[in-house]
């Protein structure tokens, strides 16, 4: 009974994650001026990507970088499928869908820690915060971009996607 409860709880969190991730995907798609008919694709792709990453690294055993890479790769494949139907470059949908996974807090924390070192003087803790968060941000961004490029690099080597 307890296990059923826990599974239900996890599923509920996953559903919340799915729904919440769609909002920033659409919001940022509007900053990028994605055409209106494509907004729904951004929402679905953003939700799938973030929920997949959440289940891989929070529920599953993977570290966040690998989970990000797999999620980005899956979103990219879905994006290529839509792009061919819709006659547009897949990045039109997929970059907005990556936005919920962008490590913004890590990046800002790293930079603020550097500013803090300058302001209050060096401490090993601050340097640790800066390096930990900065490296995390760099690796996650690299995983996002490489994951997006992977289907193209593996399956569309000498020919254009659209």
């Amino acid at each position: 009974m307890e296990r059923v409860d826990m599974a239900m709880n996890t599923l509920l969190i996953l559903l919340q994650d799915f729904g919440l991730a769609a909002v920033p995907a659409v919001g940022f798609a509007m900053i990028f001026n994605v055409p209106r008919p494509a907004l729904k694709y951004c929402a679905v792709a953003g939700a799938i990507g973030h929920a997949l990453r959440f289940s891989l690294y929070k529920i599953g055993p993977l570290p966040i970088e690998w989970a990000t890479l797999i999620a980005a790769c899956v979103v990219s494949m879905i994006g290529i499928h839509w792009a061919q139907k819709w006659r547009a470059h897949p990045k039109v949908f997929t970059v907005a869908a990556m936005i919920p996974m962008i490590p913004g807090v890590y990046a800002f924390t790293a930079l603020l820690a550097l500013v803090e070192i300058e302001r209050t003087g060096f401490t090993p803790e601050l340097l640790k915060t800066a390096t930990d968060n900065g490296l995390k941000a760099m690796f996650i961004v690299a995983a996002l971009a490489v994951g997006l490029a992977l289907p193209g690099l593996l399956f569309y080597r000498r020919r254009p996607v659209v």
Partner: peptide, 28 residues
């Protein structure tokens, strides 16, 4: 001619997006 969404609509959606980020941060 470049499409631009109405500015107020973008602001509302971006506000909602960041609120969703806050919830996602708490959720994680």
């Amino acid at each position: 001619s470049p499409l631009r969404y109405p500015r107020w609509l973008v602001s509302v959606m971006v506000g909602l997006s960041c609120a969703a980020f806050a919830r996602l941060g708490l959720l994680a």
